[in-house]
Computed example of a mutant assay.
Amino acid sequence: MEFHQIRYFLTTAETLNFTRAAERCNVSQPALTRAIKKLEEELGGALFRRERNRTHLTDLGQVMREHLGRVNTTTQDAVLAANKLLNLEKSPLKVGIMCTIGSARTIPFLSRFQMIHPGINLTIYDVTPQNLNEGLLSGNLDCALLGLPTDLEDRFDTVRLYQERMVAIFPADHRFSAMTDIPIGELADERYLDRLNCEFRNSFFELLRKRDIEVSVWYKSEREDWLQNMVLQGMGISIIPEFAISVEGVQNRPITDPDIMRNVELVTVSGRRRSPAVQAFVDEAAKYAWLA
């Protein structure tokens, strides 16, 4: 049973006239008649009964009109859904953004993307370095923005978006305000507020240990907004990516000796076929002026 047979049958059932049905379907009457005859052979009985110049549906035809009408409606809905998806109308897109990536650079891009592709249903997920891989590999995320100090596995493809420095953040009255940069040795004996989701956290404390630099950890938090407000209130200092600062009034200077940098990248699963929505997101991200 083919879709055009169903369409020919339903049109004939509506018009009860083979000539008018052929005209509506834009086919010759013999072609329409052959298609319906083949459908009757597949179903095992006649669908129409002709009496002189009148055509009627048989009992089988009545039943098939109801069932095949539903099939036709479902098929049309499926074609419409496919067209919308391929034309980026109501296309779902699940993007993970690592929790340490600030909004200063990402929100303007997302706003532009939605303006260019208003039909895409974009959902943003806050992810940590620990659950990022699982989300991508399981398909719960289509792609992700992240910034890690090490290279990813070969299972992922990356597009570099921009580079940013790690900076020390502190209140306005802190001694760091008089400095143009903060050599890492200057952190010694400072009250430190520990960002638990920081992707550099382990390597940062290892660097301090190797340099015999001791800081006093006063507070640990997964909440970036809380920690920055605590810095603003003079409760301590912290280290953070420069574009992740979101609290007005917090001061910052770049960390030096050594410089600590990270690349923010767009990540997809290598070899996985991209939907049109994912491909559109990758293309727009690759050409966007992230640091403009």
Rank of each mutant, 00 (worst) to 15 (best):
L132E: 12
V79F: 04
A46T: 06
R49K: 09
D225S: 11
R175T: 01
D154S: 08
T180K: 05
E14N: 08
A285Y: 11
E40V: 09
P92L: 00
D151W: 11
R175G: 05
V269Q: 14
Y8L: 05
I239M: 02
I124Q: 05
A292L: 15
F170K: 11
P118E: 12
F176W: 12
G96A: 14
I97R: 09
L137A: 09
T55S: 08
S275N: 07
I240T: 04
N72M: 04
I36A: 03
D257K: 06
K287F: 13
N140E: 08
E214P: 07
R191N: 13
L232R: 08
I36D: 00
F200C: 13
D142M: 09
L207T: 00
I182D: 00
N252T: 15
L88K: 11
A286R: 04
A289L: 07
I6T: 00
Y219S: 07
M98Y: 10
Y192C: 03
D212W: 07
G45R: 06
A285K: 15
K37P: 08
A21Q: 01
D173C: 07
S203F: 13
L148P: 03
L146I: 14
A292E: 15
E89P: 01
T158E: 01
I107T: 08
R7M: 15
F156M: 09
F3Y: 10
S91T: 00
L80W: 14
H56S: 00
L207G: 05
I97F: 09
G45L: 01
T158I: 08
I97N: 12
I169V: 08
L227C: 09
L141P: 02
N202Y: 13
N202W: 07
L10Y: 13
K84S: 13
R65I: 01
L88Q: 02
L122F: 02
G61W: 01
K220Q: 10
R262N: 15
L10P: 01
M261V: 15
E186A: 09
K94M: 14
P30T: 02
N197R: 04
E214V: 13
E186D: 14
D151T: 04
S111A: 14
L232W: 06
N121Q: 11
I36R: 04
G102P: 13
A244M: 01
L86M: 00
D77G: 13
L146K: 05
P276C: 07
M179L: 01
R34E: 06
D212N: 11
T268A: 03
L68A: 07
N53P: 01
R160H: 14
R54W: 02
L43I: 03
C99K: 02
R70C: 06
V79G: 06
A81E: 08
L227G: 00
L39W: 08
F156S: 10
D259V: 13
D194C: 06
V269M: 14
L39A: 12
R7A: 13
P118G: 06
A285Q: 09
